[in-house]
């Protein structure tokens, strides 16, 4: 009975951490009650597993701590399930997420369970330490440590966004004959004059200019570019249907400068909103490249021309 306060504090802190990480997800995924239920339940289980480890060790039951290993297997499963369900939905998306983005999302979901577990473990550990002064002190210590851990988790898990590694600017949609062109980069051949007219009348475009050679390498990843088009189409809406593939947004890179351009016919025709949507796209973990860190690049090439040093 005496171990109830630390375990309770741990479970509460861990579940709270998972809940907050769930709420922070703006990507409309999961945006339905079933998704919330699944992830909160898993978060609760993770928290419970984390929370029982310190009391188990404190009472000399070392075998119980090995349950943490079981949890790891369980959460790898979470990643597989997440990946599979997103992949199954991929053909139903007008603008697909792309394999890299799906992998990124799946990884995040797995990591969040570990975070819930770690938060619970820390809170419970503090609770066990606090036990010597009584049950209420134990609960208090546990919850205080838990809150600090939750705050840390929130700060640590916000990764980079495209706005951090690149400068996004509005651009003009132009045609070179039938070729859709933005800032001198040819994107695709739009054959039908009516479709070209729609691009000119209702289309918007942006230039995404990488801040350095690392950012350039990251943006050249096709998965990262697909994630950008998916997010933009999701956030601004897109004026197309399945039988109009010429309006599928495509992000193309200028091989000479590393700039990535994108043209889209959005429902919300607002340049500022488009720029903000692009800036808000997460930099996918799997696409991050850091060639400059190798030391092979001379500083003047590592820093792209005309981009002020941060």
């Amino acid at each position: 009975m005496e171990m109830v306060p630390p375990v309770a504090a741990g479970v509460m802190a861990g579940t709270l951490a998972r809940l907050l990480l769930l709420r922070r997800d703006y990507r409309q995924f999961p945006s339905y009650p079933q998704g919330y239920t699944i992830h909160l339940s898993l978060g609760f289980i993770a928290a419970a597993l984390g929370a029982i480890a310190p009391p188990a060790i404190a009472t000399g039951d070392l075998a119980a701590a090995s349950f943490l290993a079981l949890a790891a297997t369980q959460f790898r499963e979470v990643r597989a399930v997440e990946r599979e369900s997103l992949r199954n939905m991929e053909p139903t998306e007008l603008v697909p997420r792309g394999a890299a983005y799906i992998e990124g999302i799946a990884r995040v979901f797995e990591a969040r369970n570990y975070l819930a577990m770690a938060t619970a473990l820390l809170a419970s550990l503090a609770g066990v330490v606090g036990l010597r002064w009584g049950a209420w002190w134990s609960l208090g210590c546990g919850l205080a440590t838990g809150s600090v851990a939750v705050a840390l988790v929130q700060g640590l898990m916000s990764g980079q966004r495209v706005g951090d590694i690149a400068i996004v600017k509005p651009a003009r949609v132009e045609f070179d004959g039938p070729i859709l062109t933005v800032a001198g980069v040819q994107i695709m051949n739009v054959g039908l004059p009516a479709a070209r007219e729609r691009y000119l009348q209702e289309g918007l475009a942006v230039v995404i200019r990488p801040k350095d050679a690392n950012a350039r390498a990251t943006l050249s990843n096709l998965g990262q570019r697909q994630a950008i088009t998916h997010e933009v189409a999701m956030l601004l809406g897109i004026k197309m249907d399945v039988d109009e593939p010429e309006f599928t947004p495509i992000a193309r890179q200028n091989p000479a400068t590393g700039e990535v351009v994108l043209a889209i016919v959005p429902l919300l025709r607002d340049e500022r909103a488009l720029v903000r949507a692009v800036e808000y796209v997460p930099v996918l973990e799997g696409t991050v490249r850091k060639p400059v860190a190798s030391g092979l690049w001379p500083p003047d090439l590592a820093q792209l021309e005309g981009v002020p040093k941060a």
């Binding site: 004959g177 051949n189 739009v190 054959g191 039908l192 009516a194 399945v242 039988d243 593939p245 010429e246």
Partner: peptide
């Protein structure tokens, strides 16, 4: 333009202009 549009919708294809009179 009409025929190309109808065919593209039927076949879920994209119309590209080769600029030699052909789509």
């Amino acid at each position: 333009d009409q025929v190309a549009l109808l065919l593209a919708k039927l076949l879920r294809g994209t119309i590209h202009d080769l600029r030699n009179g052909s789509y």
